[in-house]
């Protein structure tokens, strides 16, 4: 079986890289959904962070400064989402969509006015975030699997575990889940549900910010228009596929990453049309949405009527 040969270490590494931004968005979306907030606006937060990150790195010549500014952009966009939805009472979905559309137009405008570029921006003075190489793994069999990723990738694995613990084993986790499932019960228990929602929205902004800088400063060192390319939405689907739980979302993100990685790999092997390969994540999203639909159908499968 020749095609089985694609399942090797480099496919694994490619999978992990593809899964990272989706998982970062997915974790944020899962926490928001758990607290009862449907956060459509993560796509825009990610895009803003990607742009601001690269701009800050370009001007300062420091990857860290770029990262900090990028994450701040994600958080500021999250605050905008919160103010419009919670303080001013606008519809969450509409606010999210507005943020996404605004971010596409806003980053394009700044790209053209600040850098006089169209389409994409790349410059040697932009400092990207370097991969981490673990000295102690050098020349061991784990080196190729575990070493040499950028920081966000390690962060994703760390977050999966931390969020699992927070979600199921802390007061904060139960408070967030209660807020989403029955806000009155939470309020009764002295939980400030608005604070919980703010917390998850800001948290999702931080993660979307990290996801954005991952795209423009880690995975590559450049900005292209609309470079979030729907990952904000795919992350949302991943969290839904994973029942809004940390490990479920993580698993779903890896699944999306796998699809992406296989697509890229097959392109090399079979010389497939690259445009077809670029479609893989979106086609997978549709497949997953269908699976979610089927799962819901199975859940309400009618009990058979007994024969008389």
């Amino acid at each position: 079986m020749e095609w089985l040969e694609i399942f090797d270490i480099s496919l694994f590494r490619s999978l992990i890289r593809s899964a990272t931004p989706i998982a970062l968005i997915g974790f944020g979306a899962a926490m928001c959904s758990a607290s009862g907030v449907l956060n459509i606006g993560l796509e825009g937060k990610m895009l803003n962070a990607a742009f601001v990150g690269i701009a800050a790195s370009y001007y300062s010549g420091s990857a860290l400064t770029g990262f900090i500014w990028g994450v701040s952009a994600g958080v500021l966009t999250a605050i905008l989402f919160g103010v419009l939805s919670f303080n001013l009472g606008a519809d969450e979905v509409l606010v999210g969509l507005a943020i996404n559309i605004f971010s596409i137009a806003g980053t394009r405008y700044l790209l053209e006015t600040l850098f006089k570029r169209r389409g994409f921006f790349s410059d040697p003075s932009i400092q990207g975030i370097d991969p981490i190489n673990f000295e102690f793994l050098v020349d061991t069999r784990f080196e190729k699997i575990l070493s040499g990723y950028t920081p966000s990738i390690y962060l994703v694995f760390f977050l999966a575990i931390v969020l699992y613990l927070v979600y199921y084993k802390t007061r904060l986790g139960t408070a967030i889940r209660a807020t989403g499932e029955n806000p009155e019960a939470a309020e009764d228990a002295g939980i400030n549900t608005l604070r919980m929602k703010w917390l998850t929205v800001i948290f999702s902004g931080v993660l979307a910010g990290i996801g954005g800088t991952f795209l423009s400063l880690e995975n590559m060192t450049l900005f292209t228009e609309g470079m979030s390319a729907g990952k904000g939405y795919i992350g949302l689907v991943a969290s839904s596929f994973g029942n809004n739980t940390p490990l479920g979302t993580f698993g779903a993100s890896l699944f999306f990453g796998l699809g992406d990685a296989i697509g890229i790999r097959l392109q090399g092997v079979y010389e497939l049309d690259s445009r077809l390969i670029l479609m893989v994540p979106y086609a997978l999203t549709v497949v997953v949405l269908i699976l979610i639909g089927i799962r819901q159908r199975i859940r309400v499968r009618p009990v058979p009527i007994p024969e008389q």
């Binding site: 139960t174 209660a178 499932e181 228990a189 002295g190």
Partner: peptide
Amino acid sequence: EFHLVPSFTAAENIGLGQE
């Protein structure tokens, strides 16, 4: 109208916020 979290157990509901 009961203020209970449906997916939580009795104890999880009772202890909510003061576990």
